[in-house]
Amino acid sequence: MNFTLHQLKIFKTIVEKKSITKAAVELNMTQPAASIQLKNFQDQFDIPLSEIIGRQFYVTDFGKEIYLIIDEILDKTETIQYKTEAFKGLLSGKLKISVVSTGNYVMPYFLSGFLNKHPKVELVLDVSNKATVIKDLEQNLVDFSLVSVIPSHLDVEELPIMDNHLVLVASKENNMVTEKGNSIFKTIPLIYREEGSGTRHTMQQFFKQEKISPKIKLELTTNEAIKQAVVANIGVSIVSLLSIKNELLQNELKIIPAKGLPLKSVWKLIYLKKKTLSPVAKAFLEYVASEKDTVYENYFSWINTIKF
């Protein structure tokens, strides 16, 4: 056999993406080039690794066995690279983090300084809703997760980073929002995040505690979609203050005073208690712990000027 590491990586990616076309995009290749490399790799075996039925790509049982071996080979290859860098005195390796969508307004500011300090570190950052983020952590697919609501069913360590304020916002053009107190939620359309969102969970806990039955107008799946809907004066919503800095500066949104608001939680970097952290993960945890006050002062001190 005379296959290359490049062919192994192509086959691995095709299996994971379940598509030659998607794998080609991931690897910055053309689809024909990926197909040729796949064929050249498969021709070295007497047993088929994959098959195309209709237009659907399928991996054979033998191909699945080969995939597992390839995964180990490529993992060992990366280890060789990281060990080489370590002997040069350089911190290298993969740092894998999952972040709830609103946390995307927080995490980049902690990553920037760390990655500048350690340019050999490879970052894998996944931004999703709370349910997916917790699932990634539970399955040990990531080193850390950034959340504001701690999963009760997992045994985790946590590093508090900064406060998260949830505020009620309306379009600057909305002249109907004049009430104060909890009755405001019964008379105006409220835009929700989807089920599984940490923001929605916090909102629902607040409504339950205050015995409020809000009027629900829309359910949207991203924080950006909610902001645009509020700016367009479709309704009002409760969002993280961190996510509306630009809209406040551009005078597109206004914060509405209401009893019990803002809601306050804490952004936390969490990881499985039994997990053995890699040198890169340990270094990042230490960096965040030592620099979090400086990062807040440099990038988030504007929050202190907001009057609720």
Rank of each mutant, 00 (worst) to 15 (best):
K254F: 14
S35R: 04
Q205I: 15
E78H: 06
E16W: 05
T77L: 12
Y192H: 02
Y67A: 10
T60Y: 09
A170S: 14
Q37I: 06
I188K: 13
T199Q: 03
K227H: 11
K307T: 02
A34L: 02
G196A: 03
E179I: 15
L154W: 04
I134M: 00
I69R: 09
P262C: 12
N182D: 09
P279G: 12
K217I: 05
A33W: 01
F185H: 07
E252H: 02
F185P: 05
V280Y: 01
L5P: 03
E297W: 01
L253N: 13
V177L: 12
K96C: 03
N174P: 05
L218D: 12
K186A: 12
R200E: 10
L277C: 05
Q37V: 07
V167R: 03
N182R: 04
K273G: 09
P108Q: 06
L38T: 04
T84V: 08
V99W: 07
L95T: 05
K130T: 13
S145A: 15
E122D: 14
I97A: 10
V15W: 01
A131T: 09
S101C: 14
T21Y: 07
A170T: 04
F308C: 13
N40G: 03
I66G: 08
K307P: 02
V236Y: 01
E210W: 00
L5I: 14
I14N: 00
L154M: 06
V239I: 14
T187V: 15
S213C: 02
K268F: 08
A283F: 07
F185V: 06
I161W: 04
E179G: 10
V127D: 05
V59I: 15
T13C: 15
E291A: 07
L168T: 02
D126M: 09
D143M: 00
N116R: 13
F87V: 14
T202L: 05
V239F: 09
L272V: 10
K274R: 09
P119S: 13
A131L: 00
F185D: 00
M29N: 05
T305A: 07
D163A: 01
L27S: 10
I244G: 06
A258Q: 10
Q31Y: 10
E65D: 15
L5T: 15
L146A: 12
T202R: 01
E158K: 02
L272M: 12
Q7L: 03
T305M: 04
N2V: 08
S290M: 06
I303T: 11
D71S: 14
K292I: 05
K282G: 03
I150A: 00
R200L: 15
M176Y: 12
S290D: 11
K275M: 11
Y67K: 01
K22Y: 11
K76M: 12
N298V: 06
T60K: 06
V121E: 03
H118L: 06
A232H: 10
F207L: 02
A23H: 04
A283V: 07
N174T: 08
I53E: 09
I184N: 07
L5V: 12
P119I: 14
H165K: 14
S171L: 07
T79Y: 07
Y105N: 14
A232T: 11
L111F: 13
N182A: 11
I47L: 11
I256A: 00
F3Q: 01
I255A: 01
A33T: 11
K96W: 01
W267A: 05
Q42V: 00
L261V: 08
K96I: 03
I184P: 03
K208M: 14
I150T: 01
V147E: 13
